[in-house]
Design a binder for these strands. Structure first.
Length: 643
DNA sequence: GATGTAGTTGTCCCT
DNA sequence: AAGGGACAACTACAT
């Protein structure tokens, strides 16, 4: 029996510590070990990746390669610029490989790709060893323990996890690594088709990713952003196992923080330092092992003198949610990433729905503009110029830094979907995919479904207010001012609703409120956009739409959703009325509205039918509210245009 | 099967 | 000024 010659294929596991798959490879006691990364065109062109995440990936790779070389000066990460499906058969032959080892990836695309690679390996007589290491539990086993069904609630995850037994303890990093053998590449490179390139908006120079199989110097080096044609990154957050372990250590050192963490009590407005761990990008790239984190927290809790927090809001709870989304995706596959054909996802007639390809019966990269108004709202949301300072601040933080607090993501998602624009969650998910450093297919799709109340969560009447939510955490608006600096001089009273500030004050504070955010300065004075709609009105429209859609009760796999007959079940008014012209307050010119008082959003207008609720006790409190409500209505409907 | 209860992460008004 | 209660009113799960 010849000694094993192993390719270790790095993908979702850019680390040496606690890598079950790497451990399996080393336990083969191989004659040689090739640490390989293949530059998969799917992620280069077909997934949405902005410059910040590109940089983060390269940093993870560089740190890993350095650590490999520290263990063995003959070794490093061998970065090969070709699709795995075409390059592996050639490598197997050239390097006389006996084993291919990698960490299991249950993302829908990855499963298809890995299936092909496994088949090619078998054809080449190469043994394949796959080990789960990306989540607390193997998502497929989690699904199995959940009676074969997708994990759709945290209690299901906890029950299934109980059957699977305790999370394995982390494995220490290896202290030595075998050298690779001969690394010559006696074959030609198959270049991928570079189009369509979903990341062209992040490139400003020529893309040379695939110029040479082993890079410009033929040394398997990690590319630079420049070689990829990608613009310079702007994020302060950096990747790599070394940083990840330092960051984890820092968190665990603060025992009270670790043991009593409660997500809902962390402030989305905190910056420097942020209120949460910022470990999610490290978990995404595998530069931090999730089990290392898990046991670090559990061991801290075990000796903590005090009452520790518990799932679902604790740090452990956060990791369980992550496993829940992985379990849902593992079970549902591609369908989990969209509504179409997804049996767990409610059908809501959102604006800007994904276009379905008849050939693949899956959504394409494009969507239908069913409403020019919705398209305008979408682009203003995406650019951070909605006119709601907290929304825009979060969006700008996301775009420049690649990370925002979880609750900030909630607000953005609620605002775009059921609590404002009534636009498909799939549009928002695509934007988060582009900009988030920690973008994880399963978690992103899952969280967007959660917040849009299409799956996992259903309390659509709980609607985030773009004004009150930020103010609750940060009265003075320090966070807003950091990311929307044109509002620097605005005080507590108007920082979350600058359109209410009197014109004279707007001038004094050197920032006028008006327009749609396309101009940021006029005659030397800064300009911040007017809110793009009256939030109170939009909330009412959305709530009504959601109520109707819940009554209709269609899911993504319903025949009537697939063939368009769903329209028969909704009235004209139920399809997310964008309010035509009456709902819009964004296009007035800067000098309009001199007193600054005209666009007070209407308070929620009187409940349609306060008496008919199945409610117990709508008692005196209700009456009081009615009374004060009508007063407010009298005040605020004054300037409203008629429908 | 009916009924009751709890659900990671709201808002508003009141004290 | 933090904190409690009413309110919105659906779904999953337990009994």
């Amino acid at each position: 029996m010849p000694k094993p010659r192993v390719i270790y294929w790095f993908r979702t596991d850019l680390r040496l510590h606690d890598s079950p798959a790497l451990n399996v490879a080393l336990n083969l006691h191989p004659d040689c070990l090739y640490p390989v990364w293949t530059w998969d065109p799917h992620y280069v062109y077909r997934a949405r990746v902005g410059s910040n995440r590109w940089q983060y990936l390269l940093e993870c790779q560089a740190d890993l390669s350095k650590s490999i070389t520290e263990l063995n000066p003959q070794s490093k990460l061998l970065l090969i610029r070709e699709a795995p499906q075409t390059v592996f058969p050639k490598l197997f032959k050239a390097w006389k490989i006996t084993h291919l080892v990698f960490e299991k990836d249950t993302d829908a695309y990855a499963r298809e790709r890995d299936g092909e690679v496994v088949k090619l390996a078998e054809e080449a007589g190469v043994k394949v060893l796959i080990k789960c290491g990306r989540t607390l539990y193997d998502p497929d086993l989690l699904v199995q323990a959940n009676n074969g069904k997708p994990t759709m609630s945290i209690s299901q995850v906890q029950a299934a996890a109980k059957k699977l037994g305790p999370v394995p303890r982390p494995i220490p990093a290896p202290t030595s690594l075998p050298s690779p053998g001969d690394t010559s590449l006696p074959f030609s490179q198959s270049k991928p088709a570079p189009s369509p390139d979903l990341n062209s908006n992040h490139r400003s120079t020529t893309d040379e990713s695939y110029a040479n199989l082993a890079g410009p110097n033929n040394d398997f080096a990690i590319p630079t952003l420049h070689e990829l044609g990608i613009n310079e990154a702007t994020t302060p957050h950096h990747g790599g196992e070394t940083l990840a372990l330092q960051q984890l250590d820092k968190i665990l050192t603060n025992k009270t923080y670790t043991a009593t963490f409660e997500k809902p009590k962390t402030a989305p407005t905190d910056f420097e330092p942020q209120a949460t761990t910022l470990l999610s990008p490290h978990l995404h790239f595998g530069s931090l092992s999730v089990r290392q984190f898990y046991w670090g927290v559990q061991d801290t809790i075990a000796v903590y003198h005090g009452t520790p927090s518990t799932p679902p809001t604790s740090l452990i709870g956060q990791l369980l949610f992550r496993d829940m989304y992985f379990g849902a995706q593992a079970s549902l596959g591609h369908a989990f990433s969209h509504t179409h054909n997804n049996p767990q996802c409610r059908f809501i007639p959102w604006h800007l729905p994904s276009t379905i390809s008849p050939a693949t019966n899956r959504p394409t990269d494009t969507y239908t503009i069913d409403s020019p108004q919705a398209e305008e709202w979408f682009s203003r949301w995406r650019d951070g110029r909605t006119g709601f300072p907290f929304v825009d601040a979060l969006m700008r933080q996301l775009r420049t830094e690649g990370w925002i607090h979880h609750l900030g993501r909630h607000l953005l998602a609620c605002f775009l979907t059921r609590g404002g624009c009534y636009i498909s969650w799939e549009r928002g998910a695509a934007v988060f995919e582009e900009f988030l450093l920690d973008h994880e297919v399963a978690c992103n799709a899952g969280n967007w479904q959660w917040l849009s109340c299409t799956a996992f969560y259903s309390q659509y009447y709980r609607c985030y207010s773009p004004v009150a939510f930020g103010r609750k955490w940060d009265r003075e608006g320090r966070f807003v001012k950091r990311y929307v600096p044109e509002l620097e001089a605005y005080g507590e009273k108007f920082i979350y609703e600058p359109w209410k500030a009197p014109r004279a004050d707007q001038r004094k504070w050197k920032c006028l409120v008006g327009g749609d955010g396309m101009s940021i300065e006029e005659n030397g004075v800064k300009v911040y956009p007017k809110p793009m709609f009256d939030f109170g009105e939009r909330r009412d429209v959305c709530l009504k739409g959601m109520k109707k859609a819940y009554e209709v009760g269609l899911y993504g796999d319903d025949e009537r959703v697939l063939d368009g007959r769903w329209r028969e079940l909704f009235g004209e008014d139920d399809v997310g009325d964008t309010g035509g012209e009456s709902g819009q307050v964004g296009n007035d010119d800067v000098e309009a509205d001199e007193d600054g008082q005209g666009h007070e959003p209407s308070a929620r207008k009187g409940k349609k039918d306060p008496a008919s609720g199945k409610g117990k006790g709508k008692g005196k409190d209700g009456h009081k509210r009615e009374a004060s409500q009508s007063t407010l209505d009298g005040m605020f409907t004054r300037n409203k245009k008629k429908k």
